[in-house]
Write a protein that binds this DNA or RNA. Structure first.
Lengths: 152, 152
DNA sequence: CGCTAATAGTTAGCAGGCTAACGAATTGTC
DNA sequence: GACAATTCGTTAGCCTGCTAACTATTAGCG
């Protein structure tokens, strides 16, 4: 039996921690009928104003087809609006509706609450270290996989 | 406009880093026709031998209904076997098939490769710190959410 | 013994992640 | 100006995550 201890792996800890984080976030958002990803869409729109789907997908680091259905649901629920771009008929501009404004206020509350829970007992310095280390791992994995060696 | 900077949030870095990790892992496993979660199933079976679905779900930290379909696909592909438990007719014991053995060897290779890529440039001490901090965040979020205050 | 409670696995339904492939529109180039 | 390459949004199909609700079985307790 080949041994590989999942418990010792960075991947294991990334997986379970992120899963917990998303679950906590989504649980906290249930009363407002919204999800983690949907809240992130509203977050970017609040920061940047109208964005095309490609721009939004880029900022959220997800693929465009993934975003399409998230936006479909949000449009169905009246949280966002798709508007044809006046200068490029391929593009659609995504904007937050008036209905989403009060929801966004609640999201910020939830986000701060979850963050406080998540970082309980960690110093500011430790939190900064965590972000730095995660950033490094992220960057490492962004690079192309090592060139295909003619292995075997 | 309420401001909440996603880029500064621990949740943001957890999300994007874990996503990259899973994508890299899944990409590396494509040649073997298997996924990250499926490889984890084989990992636990290699470590522990036969397990019931509830035990397996517990170790993988996912809900039983999520595991059911993962196992359905693995059974369809001949990687695992479901066997009725002789002493408890509710339970089914999950075991790895002979066909999965060579696949498991490949998985270990992939896992080590991804881990090496992910931790490139990090000292052993930094890797340990990362795991410790992730463990703390995970533990924090495992606790019940703060008792419902009669807010508003 | 018998009834209730708890447990194991499943199904259904929803949200989200990906790739491949496609039509419509724009850009670039000759 | 016309044709190829690129970009944008979408659809289809697969895998993974959750909760709620169901069946079958076992455990607990009077």
């Amino acid at each position: 039996m080949l041994d590989y201890d999942f418990d010792e792996s960075i991947g294991y800890w990334l997986t379970v921690t992120t899963q917990r984080y998303h679950r906590a976030f989504n649980d906290a958002l249930v009363p407002y009928g919204i999800t983690f990803r949907q809240s992130q869409v509203l977050g970017w729109l609040a920061l940047e104003g109208e964005l095309s789907q490609a721009e939004l997908a880029g900022k959220m680091m997800i693929e465009p087809p993934t975003l399409v259905r998230i936006l479909d649901r949000m449009e169905r629920d009246g949280l966002i609006r798709r508007r044809p771009c006046p200068t490029d008929r391929r593009r659609k501009l995504i904007g937050a509706t008036a209905k989403s404004k009060p929801v966004w206020a609640k999201i910020v509350e939830c986000a701060k609450g979850i963050r406080a829970r998540a970082t309980d007992g960690l110093t500011d310095r430790q939190q900064a270290t965590l972000k730095t280390l995660l950033g490094r791992v992220h960057e490492n994995l962004l690079l192309q996989p090592p060139a295909e060696l003619p292995d075997r």
